[in-house]
Computed example of a mutant assay.
Amino acid sequence: MKGIKVVIDRQFAINLSRGLEVLRAFNPADQLLGNKELCERTSLPKATVSRLTYTLEKLGYLLKVDRLQKYRLGPGVLMLGYPMLAGLEIRHLARPHMEQLATKTKWTVNLGMLGRLEVVYIDALRLDRRNFLKPDIGSSRPLLTTSIGRALLLASSEKDQNAILNRIKIAYPTQYRKDVHHFNRDKAFYEKNSYCLSLGDWESNVCAVSVPLRVGSSDDPTIALNCTLSGSKLSQQEIHQSIIPHLFEAKHNIEKDSGRIFISRKY
Results as ranks from 00 to 15, higher is better:
51 R>G: 11
126 R>V: 09
29 A>Q: 14
256 K>G: 09
81 G>K: 03
192 K>Q: 15
104 K>E: 10
260 R>C: 10
138 G>Y: 12
162 N>E: 15
237 Q>F: 13
108 T>Y: 00
105 T>G: 05
240 H>M: 03
197 L>C: 01
135 P>A: 05
148 I>D: 02
62 L>Q: 10
109 V>K: 00
17 S>K: 11
28 P>H: 00
254 I>S: 01
56 L>R: 00
249 E>M: 09
40 E>Q: 14
260 R>E: 13
7 V>E: 05
158 E>Q: 04
89 E>I: 01
62 L>M: 11
84 M>T: 15
130 R>N: 15
189 F>H: 15
196 C>I: 13
41 R>T: 13
8 I>S: 00
111 L>W: 04
93 L>F: 07
82 Y>D: 08
91 R>D: 02
253 N>W: 03
244 I>M: 02
47 A>T: 14
166 N>Y: 02
195 Y>M: 03
265 R>E: 09
39 C>L: 01
212 P>H: 02
109 V>T: 10
95 R>P: 03
170 I>Q: 11
62 L>P: 07
185 R>S: 02
262 F>R: 15
32 L>K: 12
154 L>I: 09
51 R>I: 07
214 R>I: 04
253 N>G: 01
2 K>I: 01
131 N>P: 05
29 A>G: 08
107 W>H: 00
245 P>H: 07
165 L>N: 02
248 F>C: 06
153 L>D: 10
228 T>H: 09
11 Q>V: 06
198 S>Q: 07
135 P>S: 04
